[in-house]
Simulated assay, not measured.
Amino acid sequence: MKEGIHPEYREVVFKDMTPGIDFQFISRSTIQTKETIEFEGKEYPLVKLDTSSASHNFYTGETRIMDAEGRVDKFKKKFGARAGGKVA
């Protein structure tokens, strides 16, 4: 490999941020992070995950409501009258 053109490949801790789930694991990645965490007595870069195998309903068998509002209602609430779709 050429020197200086590849990103740093290092060990990183991935942590599931779902409330009530305490799941984290070490893997290797080139992802850039600003946060660090101490894991098993050593400091690693931290990547926060919305979902992992510990919280995804396919793996857990549980049904969780991730988004209580419908997507259309959420869009209308966010953009209101501007989302009318009429072009002047």
Rank of each mutant, 00 (worst) to 15 (best):
K42L: 11
A68N: 01
P7F: 10
K48E: 09
E43A: 14
I5G: 13
T60I: 04
T63Y: 13
S55Q: 04
F39E: 06
M17E: 07
M66F: 13
T51S: 15
A81Y: 02
V13P: 07
G61I: 06
K42R: 09
E11M: 14
Q24P: 02
R71M: 14
K77T: 04
G61A: 08
I21T: 02
E40V: 03
D73F: 07
R28S: 14
T18P: 01
S52R: 04
T60N: 03
D16S: 04
D67V: 02
D22E: 09
D73W: 04
E62I: 01
R10A: 11
T30N: 11
F25L: 06
T63Q: 12
T63F: 13
V13G: 01
F39L: 14
T36S: 12
A54L: 04
Y59V: 01
T33M: 09
R64H: 12
G20H: 02
M17T: 09
A88M: 08
T60Q: 02
V47S: 10
Q32T: 13
F75G: 01
M17S: 06
I65L: 08
R82E: 15
D22S: 03
I37A: 05
H56P: 00
E35I: 08
E40H: 10
F39R: 03
F14V: 10
G85D: 04
V47E: 10
Y59W: 13
E3P: 03
I5T: 15
V13K: 00
A54C: 06
F23H: 06
R28L: 05
L49S: 05
D22G: 01
F39Y: 14
F25W: 13
K34G: 15
E69N: 03
F25D: 10
G80M: 08
S55D: 04
E8C: 14
E11H: 15
P7D: 10
K15N: 08
K34M: 12
S29F: 03
I21Q: 02
Y9K: 15
D16Q: 04
G80H: 09
I65T: 14
R71D: 11
G80C: 11
I21P: 00
F25T: 06
F39P: 00
D16W: 01
E8I: 15
S29N: 05
R71G: 12
A83G: 05
V87Q: 04
S55N: 07
S52Y: 00
A81I: 14
T63I: 15
K86P: 05
R28N: 07
I31C: 10
K2Y: 14
Y59A: 12
E69Q: 09
T30K: 13
H56V: 02
A81G: 12
K15S: 12
A88W: 06
E35T: 06
T63N: 15
K76N: 06
K42Q: 14
F79I: 06
T33R: 12
P19N: 00
F75T: 12
T33W: 06
K77H: 07
L49E: 14
I26L: 13
E62D: 14
K15P: 01
R28E: 05
S53Q: 10
E38P: 00
N57D: 14
I31D: 04
D50R: 10
F39M: 02
D73Q: 11
K77M: 04
K77R: 12
T51W: 05
S52P: 00
Y9T: 11
P19I: 01
